[in-house]
């Protein structure tokens, strides 16, 4: 099938550090794929490469067969690949509605169409009461939702979410899970999700891709990954069992945003 986002043999070097080493990953338009791994394993770097914010030292990124490796982020977005940021990036002086509307405007749609799309999304995700609130005034969880809506408003075919559940409480992240699940069928949009919340990841994703120190160490379904000894050793550790019925204690699998000293480059 050519309707895919496909990264092939990506190598990304930072001064003296190989952040990504021959990573290949693909995402279909009706799939939810999880990208997991310990802190510093290269997940965000991979998203930056896919979205055009970083140019890889080797390898290629293709969207529906077209090589977009050298494209700037703006053109990649116009080709249907949109990402969110590990540290939420909203348009702070503007309202929730305007933020979502801008997604559609960014995709080149007319104002009236953008308005309709923004209203529909806000209604669909049941945040009508936040519509005219300045996005600066939102809680962290609300900001994450708005960032996702803004991305969906572009009509993207592939959406990359960098830790959408970080900083959310249990109830909020359960709510998010429900909403993310339906995105592929409702929007015809494949999801690549990075998160440390194994409860969310295991229940949401059709497939998982595990990175460790820039290398792919495993790929497969949630069950296969949980049973994979390499993954358990490198990342899941004692969480493997927690992951099975992680609903009991989802935060255990979350090494939290506190130690994210990596400043995002994009």
């Amino acid at each position: 099938m050519s309707e895919r986002l496909a990264a092939d043999g990506i190598v990304m070097n930072f001064a003296g550090l190989r952040a990504l080493d021959q990573v290949s990953l693909s995402l279909g338009r009706h799939e939810i794929v999880g990208l997991i791994g310990p802190n510093g394993s290269g997940k965000t770097t991979l998203v930056n490469v896919l979205a055009g914010a970083l140019k890889p030292n080797a390898g290629s990124v293709r969207i529906d067969g077209e090589d977009v490796t050298a494209f700037p982020p703006r053109r990649i977005a116009r080709h249907g690949l949109v990402r969110t940021f590990q540290t939420v990036r909203l348009f702070g002086t503007m309202s929730v509605f305007e933020n979502v509307q801008l997604g559609a405007l960014g995709a080149g749609l007319r104002r009236s169409k953008a308005t309709t799309i923004a209203n529909e999304l806000i209604e669909l995700f049941e945040i009508e009461d936040l519509r005219d609130v300045s996005s600066d005034a939102l809680s962290y969880g609300q900001k994450r939702i708005v960032e996702i809506l803004r991305s969906l408003a572009t009509g993207c075919k592939y959406l990359l979410l960098d830790e959408p559940a970080a900083g959310l409480n249990e109830e909020e992240s359960e709510h998010l899970l429900g909403q993310l699940t339906s995105i592929p069928e409702k929007f015809g949009c494949g999801l690549l999700i990075i998160d440390h919340d194994m409860n969310l990841i295991m229940r949401l994703c059709h497939r998982l891709h595990v990175l460790n120190q820039g290398k792919t160490i495993a790929e497969g379904t949630a069950d296969e990954i949980r049973a994979n000894p390499t993954v358990v050793e490198a990342y899941l550790g004692s969480q493997a069992t927690a992951g099975a019925d992680a609903a009991a204690n989802p935060t255990a699998a979350n090494p939290t945003a506190a130690n994210h000293t990596v400043t995002e480059r994009s």
């Binding site: 914010a53 949109v82 990402r83 940021f85 990036r89 348009f91 997604g103 405007l105």
Partner: peptide
Amino acid sequence: SSLGMKLRASRDNVHAASAIGINV
């Protein structure tokens, strides 16, 4: 206007503006 909104978006966060396809 749409142009004004896109500009203000790039002012608030230039990376986010590019990431949704705005030609800053």
